[in-house]
Amino acid sequence: MITIDSISKKYRIPHEKRITVFETLGGYLRNRMEYQDFYALKNITLSIQKGEIIGLIGKNGSGKTTLLKILGGVLSPTEGVFAINGKVAPFLSLGVGFHHELTARENLYLYGAILGMSRNEINEKLPDIFDFAGVERFKDVKLKNFSTGMIGRLAFSLMIQTDPDVLLLDEIFAVGDKDFIPQSIGILERYKKEGKTIVLASHDLEFISKYCDRVIFLENGNLGMFGSAGEVIKMYLAS
């Protein structure tokens, strides 16, 4: 279960951005820095039940990724609190941390460690991972020779080997092909049965309306609507 209580994320945007020592010192000497407040998220309150698949929609820049990053612990909210029951998968988008100069297998060791798996555990699961990703033949090929889709599949296959209670996914099905998408949807359905909670941001409204129990619509950082897929999507399209 996830409860979010009046969360805001405020960024201070300096009128002139000072990112160097000299600019900062110079700025302090001349005048105080002037900032403009920008709310990436404003006063979001909602709660999600265990075992729900939640869609997250909104225009570009509406705060979808910010919300996922806050839930994932990557960003901290400026105001408000949230609580999550269970372990959260510590990543948002697939393939982050993959290094293109390393081979697929080496990347799995590295990424696996970040996800909490030891080298031995990865070795045990290696056949499954490659099999599911369908890149068995390329396991010792450097990742720079992989297509974007193949990298996505590899990352997804590794991800399902970890066993999180809550998954936060940011646009992960954008790169899969016709075989991989049904495969991964199968996994999501299995997760749902097992009572895992999934929050996924996507622009694929068809997908959202088909698989999500409820949908969050963000509008310029505000909670536009939170409810059944049909109504929320209708409102989103009208906005």
Partner: peptide, 21 residues
């Protein structure tokens, strides 16, 4: 999901750096 073993992450990251270098 298990607790992440940070020492393992540190080890794998530095080994990857070593190989890349």
């Amino acid at each position: 999901m298990k607790k992440i073993n940070y020492f393992n992450v540190i080890k794998e990251l530095s080994w990857a750096d070593f190989k890349l270098k």
